[in-house]
Design a protein around this nucleic acid. Structure first.
Lengths: 153, 153
DNA sequence: TAGGATTAGTTATCCGAATAACTATTATGC
DNA sequence: GCATAATAGTTATTCGGATAACTAATCCTA
């Protein structure tokens, strides 16, 4: 692949990242949330209470990021942390009532953002997009390069 | 658009952003660069010396980000800042010899990263990707929403 | 030409996300 | 059973990127 093509692709991915995140930030700001936090709340809503290591895995980010995000969401009252009964190292994270209420609003924003994002694209392209983007993400997944994790579960 | 589809799309974009950036970071680390800096150097290589306001526009990020990035790249010796002759507010940023040498290496990494990213995808999809991703980025461009800038010039 | 508006850039502060280094707990192997 | 390895989480620090608030220079207009 020559540099022009490579640059067009890498640049487009970088720009989409910036813009999508910026737009998410603008939509989430009225809720008092910063981008990234909505993913944590949605994951808890989707899967139920879980420990931080599971959250880290599900969100695709590192444990220290989860520590800080959960702490801020806990301070905001959207999340509760309780010691795991079977493992004294772990702490279980779950949504509070405030967090559950917020998730409803996030879901509406999420639909609006996605709709906005694909405006003007053919329906077939839109339908294929998630699969394509996941394939791209999988191709550059640094975790898959590590010796221990041979499969995505 | 229902929530499941919206979430699949937003989540895929978020994950691709994280992974692509992480992989870029891993590739750029041996050069002593952090992700984002390579975009600045490539832009200077592409367009030639320019003032920070132009860099900010070209990179799609805000002036304070450019200030910090240029300062660090200047400290590393890859970039030089000189006062603009015609406007005493502005400072012209240009590549040093060290920066030019680095650009050559970045270009190789960039090709490798792009190739890695699209591994296994049909050639036609790969060919259409940059255009599609740019369309998505354009759709969520917060700048286009501002009242003063009715057009992209 | 004097004064307000715009523009270029910086500083301070916040956040997500990363790595490195550390503690505490659990699991494992001899 | 005990020492070692692996795991859960935190702290400290770094970076890109954002906004808000500010200075300094330029532009524009009345």
């Amino acid at each position: 692949m020559d540099f022009e093509q490579a640059d067009a692709l890498n640049q487009a991915i970088r720009l989409l990242s910036l813009r999508h995140r910026a737009r998410a930030a603008a939509l989430l700001a009225p809720l008092g949330l910063h981008p990234g936090q909505e993913a944590l709340l949605l994951e808890l809503a989707r899967t139920g209470p879980m420990i931080q290591a599971e959250l880290s895995e599900a969100l695709g980010c590192e444990p220290p990021s989860v520590t800080l995000m959960t702490r801020k969401l806990e301070a905001a009252g959207h999340v509760r942390r309780t010691p795991a009964p079977s493992d004294r190292r772990a702490s279980v994270v779950e949504l509070t009532d405030s967090g559950k209420a917020l998730v409803g609003q996030i879901k509406r924003l999420w639909c609006a953002l996605a709709g906005e994002t694909v405006t003007g694209l053919p329906a077939q392209t839109v339908a294929e997009l998630p699969r394509i983007l996941r394939a791209l993400a999988g191709n550059v997944d640094a975790r898959a390069r590590r010796p221990h994790g041979s499969g995505t579960v």
